[in-house]
Design a protein around this nucleic acid. Sequence first.
DNA 1: TCTGGGGTCCTAGGACCC
DNA 2: TCTGGGGTCCTAGGACCC
Length: 436
Amino acid sequence: MYNYSNEPRKVIFMIDSKSFYASVESVARGLNPLRSILVVMSTENNTGSGLVLAASPMAKKIFGITNVSRATDVPIHDKRLVIAQPRMNLYIEENLKINKLFQQFASNDDIHPYSIDESIIDMTTSWKLFGNSPYEVARKIQLAVKGKTGIYTTVGIGDNPLLAKFALDIEAKHNHSLIAEWHYEDVPDKLWPITQLDDIWSIGSRTAEKLKKNHINSMNDLAHFNPYELKNKFGVIGSQLFAFSWGIDRSIIHDKYTPKEKSYGNSQVLPKDYVIQSEIEVVIREIAEQVAARLRSHHKVATVINLGIGFSLAESTDSGKKYSGFGSSLKIDSTNSNAQITKYAIDLFQKKWHHEALRHISISCGKLVDDNSQQLDMFDTNNTEQKNHNLDNTIDIIRKKYGFKSIVKLSSKSEGATAIYRAGLVGGHAGGNTYE
DNA sequence: TCTGGGGTCCTAGGACCC
DNA sequence: TCTGGGGTCCTAGGACCC
């Protein structure tokens, strides 16, 4: 057994709102989120096929719907199934309510929203104020959230953030209480038996495959693999994986969840294959202007731009149906102007494009620097900005808290095919209510 | 997965500098 | 010139997460 005496022993809660979007929609309809049969489905997306953003537990159970199902897999004519349009703004509001409740149990500095439905709370110093055990406090938080919002929450409790995340993902979701508690000593019993490696946070399908090729078929195998060999084969990821297999996570929450790099980007899957240069450049301009507007609203200038182009499947050369495309980055003179960002994006495009049919376009700006110039750009005011002021504020609060994994509101309106429609979207989905 | 959208982080090779 | 070694920056590409 590894000697854990030098590892941090904290009381970390990782709290996740169960089937969040679907639960919010269930509550809004007076339904119990655990009993309702409901999906939140975006039917207005570009491909026309629709995408399931969330499914209630019963919808998953009865129809086998998963969160990435296509609309074609959803029995839309079945009367038992409730289909809800996404209302991203409502979900943001509910998330803010829930995080506000957490502030009754821990100081704001100890609460770290991780995504729209997950938060990490360092309860080390405060849990004793609310109960006789962390478990009991978790129960109280669950009840408080349920009482205020109708949402069920799942809580992973751990000695460090990693163990809390594992407790949440691997065990809590299956417990009747929706709570699980993991200590270092539980690692051999609870973590090592896992053979479905891509169930583990930070291991995706590619890494799982590569591990299998090295005869690592379980977390137990990983924990007993030669760490130097892992490092050689997987780089720093290898060292990290090895540490994770022993439940070790030395990062302090604040460091870990404060991003080192920040970028703003927007992307679109196009409604059809695009082959005409002028049409493509209209869309590039729209996206570039969205990104530039976001930079300006955050008072940042970018010094790197990246253009990503995804080809139509028709461009796929080998027999395996794989998407292809290119990405291209460029260091640029710091800017956040529509004209400059657009020019760089179109230059990159013209340099790399050889008349392939396109299906996907993304533009991202990074290596951000504070915009000190703050010049008034009289001919470039964003008229929608004032109108959306309240929503912007809300989203900025979340963005600020999240640091990353942030929510994105596409507020820029410009002439052009998709921009006006997309202006109402939040995170690429319908925002709901007043802003459309 | 015949394609959602928005992010962060890591690696590797080449250019360039001293 | 059959030229060392270390460091940084730039770009492309890959992987993963929610």
